[in-house]
Design a protein around this nucleic acid. Sequence first.
DNA 1: ATGGTTGACTTTCAA
Length: 261
Amino acid sequence: MKIASFNINGIKARINALTDWLAGADADVVVLQEIKSVDETFPRAHFEDLGWNIETHGQKGFNGVAILSKLPLEDVIRGLPGDDGDEQSRYIEATVTGVQAVRIAGLYLPNGNPVPGPKYDYKLAWMERLRLRAQELLAAEMPVVMLGDFNIIPEARDAASPEKWREDALFLPQSRAALRRIVWRGWTDAIRARDPWSTRGPFTFWDFQGGAWNKDDGIRIDHMLLSPQAADLLEETGVDREARAGEKPSDHVPVWVRLAA
DNA sequence: ATGGTTGACTTTCAA
């Protein structure tokens, strides 16, 4: 089972880029972030005609996540548990069954800038709720893939220019510690696990500003965390870097993992 | 040098 994540930065603006990438990716499941669309205006029929089952959790203008799957999507949860007052659409879960059942958690973690301020407070509070949900998922002792745009640069080697991010919500020690607090309980960072001694990247995001792509001034913020039962099934991971050089690209590129599931 | 780019959606905000 090949499972991918792609922050598309607007489904309407990216429908061609996404369709082209899907045609060559051979993915079974794709989680999307920043659809920037309400559920009603997501181009559902376009993707259904290509054979995808679709579950969305959108909102007007910003954020929004979705799952595309060639296999049926079951037991869907919309929204990160733990705060019924949270209006932002950043989390969706579903179960996909191939050889065996895999729980998929697609997430768009808050950016958190500027720091300090209410947006950073929201980021840290959201991460605490994610920690609690991650613990519940580990307790299920089943294959789980928790993936998406985490908006966290885990280590200095995950940025081309770490000094530029020193004061940023994506790289502050407190942000990175909050991610480690989740991961260390038993999750495997799939991209890092397949290339543990990499000294640079691989990057998954290059800002639209300042010619970041042309300078390869990237960061690694799109992650795939595997539960132990999923890590046991890990076959291959990848970062589809070439997507950043395409026509009207997103600022993120797809990341993917293949499991024997 | 206090810049630069993109998307959604209105006139600015979020990233």
